[in-house]
Design a protein around this nucleic acid. Sequence first.
DNA 1: ACCTGAACACCGTTCAAGT
DNA 2: ACCTGAACACCGTTCAAGT
Lengths: 215, 215
Amino acid sequence: MQRSEARQGPVEQRLARTADPALADRRRRQIMDAAIACFRRRGFHQATMQEICAEAGISAGALYRYFSSKAEIIGAIAEDRRGEGDVAFLRAAEKHGFIEAMCFAAQNFVQKFADGDGPLIADIMGEVLRDDAIAKVLRLSDIRSIAIFAAAVRAAQDRGEIDATLEPETAANTLFAIVEGIGLRRAFQGETDAEAAIAQFRVVAERYLNPRVRS
Amino acid sequence: MQRSEARQGPVEQRLARTADPALADRRRRQIMDAAIACFRRRGFHQATMQEICAEAGISAGALYRYFSSKAEIIGAIAEDRRGEGDVAFLRAAEKHGFIEAMCFAAQNFVQKFADGDGPLIADIMGEVLRDDAIAKVLRLSDIRSIAIFAAAVRAAQDRGEIDATLEPETAANTLFAIVEGIGLRRAFQGETDAEAAIAQFRVVAERYLNPRVRS
DNA sequence: ACCTGAACACCGTTCAAGT
DNA sequence: ACCTGAACACCGTTCAAGT
């Protein structure tokens, strides 16, 4: 977080050329794990770089060899967690229908709020919305996820399971928006009942996706 | 943002007992306006208290007489803007149907992202999700809004305009979640086409609310 | 090549001193 | 009662110096 510059340059910011890529990977993981622990304990903004360094057992200078800012750490964490849900969704989509799999994915997402990760997700959202560099990275993960879900929409349409007139990409995007909106709102309201959240989502999803008998 | 305390105490934090309430109101407005200008220009986290003070033409000490923290300023701004949309919605709900009014409200919300206020809204969301004191205040505004929209849902159900089996409070909550989810996602994606956002919302809202011919 | 940790540059908030 | 502004306490980031 450069204090007084516009920070507009290319996202190139490749960090220290490292001789041993394995070490670099190890260090990044080590730092991310330490950061997760600290963020869980005290939240993104309360947690201190010094704390993260202590938890990771390295110095501040060393940390900045592998991450160019505090924001980049949470960005890396977010990117890392993305896609985990995608594979789970794909598996579920094969076994049960699309809607069931979608509810499962929603469950997956909202559940994290109910567990300890609520504030962390919130912090990630906040940081993503305010940091262009992070946003740029996460948009790539997002595009990949959307593509996966859109493909599943197409398959479900072919099976006659959901409305065939929906544009797959738009449908996937909309479903994501609904899940995130519900998760966000419940976090805001301090609700932690994941069951109720899924029930709420299921009604919207079913009505949105169901093949119509009349428009 | 006390630096090293848990900040759990009651939200009492009544500020400086002031002799002249009119002066207090004037000062708060003056500070909020200055803050809006600064936040627009540089974003919540980039904007400095000193800048806000300069813009408002007062000293730091004076500012803290009327707001106990930087976060509280953005909270006050958010609360202030809330409800503006509510009255507009109510007027629209009388003239046109509920769904039209709802789309109008969504338009209202998403439009702000397209205008200069996108980052500001994002910052508010982020701050709300991370600051309990702010969240507590905004939850009150939220409850009021939900009540208004739930009443409109009930009226529309009585007119047979939308599905009567929906629980009004839940429906209002869900619609809010969808609007916010779509707004958030589009902000994240850097989309600024408000028209497309409304079209996206309209499809979901119509299918969610339409009276069913079959379940 | 990789690391350390003191130093730097900031910034939100407070408080003694003014009027 | 209301205000000023220098001082305080912190914190993210850097960089000269080590191995």
